[in-house]
Deep mutational scan, measured.
Amino acid sequence: GSVVKEKKEKALIEVRPYVEYYNELKALVSKISSSVNDLEEAIVVLREEEKKASEPFKTDIRILLDFLES
């Protein structure tokens, strides 16, 4: 629970300088966080969101995924 939350919060802070739609990304992460149990599940849902998103938000999600998977 809290470790996953920390990882996601740290990821958002780390990617902030590189993303165009930070507030939207943060809102998406919050929405996903409330419906998943762990980081792996969150990553799966983020990948689905990435497929549906259009640029440049798609790239923002990709940047976040790269950080979460590192």
Rank of each mutant, 00 (worst) to 15 (best):
G1M: 02
G1D: 11
G1A: 12
G1H: 08
S2T: 08
S2Y: 01
S2N: 11
S2V: 09
S2Q: 10
S2R: 06
S2P: 05
V3I: 11
V3T: 13
V3K: 11
V4M: 13
V4A: 10
V4G: 09
V4N: 10
V4E: 11
V4Y: 10
V4T: 08
V4H: 09
V4F: 14
K5S: 12
K5A: 12
E6W: 07
E6P: 04
E6N: 09
E6G: 11
E6K: 06
E6R: 07
K7G: 06
K7H: 11
K7Y: 14
K8P: 14
K8N: 15
K8C: 15
K8H: 15
E9K: 05
E9A: 05
E9Q: 06
E9W: 14
E9H: 07
E9C: 15
E9F: 14
K10A: 12
K10L: 13
A11E: 03
A11N: 03
A11C: 14
A11T: 04
A11Y: 04
A11W: 14
A11F: 06
A11V: 06
A11L: 10
L12R: 01
L12K: 01
L12I: 03
L12A: 01
L12Q: 01
I13E: 14
I13W: 07
I13Y: 04
I13G: 04
E14K: 10
E14G: 06
V15K: 03
V15W: 02
V15C: 14
R16N: 05
R16C: 14
R16A: 12
R16L: 12
P17D: 14
P17E: 11
P17F: 06
P17S: 05
Y18C: 13
V19G: 02
V19W: 05
V19N: 01
E20P: 01
E20F: 15
E20H: 15
E20S: 15
Y21S: 07
Y21C: 14
Y21H: 11
Y21A: 08
Y21T: 02
Y22Q: 01
Y22T: 03
Y22P: 02
Y22E: 02
Y22I: 03
N23H: 10
N23G: 05
N23W: 13
N23E: 14
E24W: 10
E24D: 06
E24Y: 06
E24G: 03
L25N: 00
L25R: 01
L25Y: 01
L25E: 00
K26M: 13
K26Y: 15
K26D: 05
K26W: 14
K26C: 05
K26Q: 07
K26E: 13
A27M: 08
A27E: 09
A27C: 04
A27Q: 07
A27F: 10
A27W: 09
L28N: 00
L28Y: 03
L28D: 00
L28S: 00
L28M: 05
L28V: 02
V29K: 01
V29A: 04
V29Y: 15
V29M: 12
S30R: 08
S30T: 12
S30C: 15
K31Q: 08
K31V: 08
K31I: 07
K31F: 12
I32K: 03
I32Y: 05
I32P: 02
I32F: 06
S33M: 14
S33P: 05
S33N: 05
S33V: 13
S33F: 15
S33E: 09
S33T: 12
S34E: 14
S34A: 12
S35T: 10
S35A: 11
S35Q: 12
S35R: 12
S35N: 09
V36L: 05
V36H: 05
V36G: 04
V36Q: 04
V36A: 07
V36D: 05
V36W: 07
N37V: 07
N37T: 08
N37R: 09
N37I: 06
N37A: 10
N37P: 08
D38L: 08
D38K: 08
D38M: 06
D38P: 04
L39H: 04
L39D: 12
L39P: 06
E40V: 07
E40P: 07
E40Q: 09
E40D: 11
E40W: 10
E41A: 08
E41D: 06
E41L: 05
E41Q: 08
E41I: 04
A42Q: 08
A42P: 01
A42M: 15
A42L: 15
I43M: 11
I43W: 09
I43Q: 04
V44P: 06
V44F: 14
V44W: 15
V44N: 09
V45Y: 15
V45P: 03
V45N: 08
V45S: 11
V45F: 15
L46H: 00
L46Y: 02
L46K: 00
L46E: 00
R47T: 06
R47D: 02
R47N: 05
R47F: 05
R47I: 08
R47M: 07
R47E: 06
E48A: 13
E48K: 13
E48L: 14
E49A: 05
E49F: 10
E49C: 06
E49R: 04
E49Y: 11
E49H: 08
E49I: 04
E50C: 13
E50N: 05
E50P: 00
E50W: 15
E50V: 08
E50M: 14
K51L: 09
K51S: 10
K51R: 11
K51W: 11
K52F: 07
K52G: 06
K52T: 06
K52N: 09
K52L: 09
A53H: 11
A53F: 06
A53E: 07
A53Y: 08
A53Q: 07
A53I: 03
S54H: 09
S54G: 05
S54C: 09
S54I: 09
S54P: 09
E55F: 13
E55V: 12
E55G: 12
P56H: 03
P56C: 03
P56Q: 04
P56R: 06
P56G: 06
F57Y: 06
F57V: 01
F57S: 01
F57T: 01
F57N: 01
F57P: 00
K58M: 03
K58R: 11
K58S: 09
K58V: 03
K58P: 00
K58H: 01
K58I: 02
K58T: 03
K58N: 03
T59D: 03
T59Q: 11
T59F: 14
T59P: 02
D60N: 04
D60Y: 15
I61R: 00
I61Q: 00
I61G: 00
I61S: 00
I61P: 00
I61H: 00
I61M: 03
I61C: 02
R62E: 02
R62G: 09
R62I: 03
R62Y: 04
R62L: 05
R62D: 01
I63C: 03
I63E: 01
I63T: 08
L64Y: 14
L64I: 03
L64H: 00
L64W: 02
L64M: 05
L64G: 00
L64A: 02
L64P: 00
L64Q: 00
L65E: 00
L65I: 10
L65S: 04
L65V: 10
L65F: 02
L65P: 00
L65Y: 03
D66E: 09
D66A: 14
D66Y: 15
D66H: 15
F67D: 01
F67S: 04
F67V: 12
F67L: 05
L68Y: 04
L68Q: 00
L68F: 08
L68V: 04
L68H: 01
L68S: 01
E69H: 10
E69M: 10
E69D: 10
E69N: 11
E69C: 10
E69L: 11
E69S: 12
S70R: 10
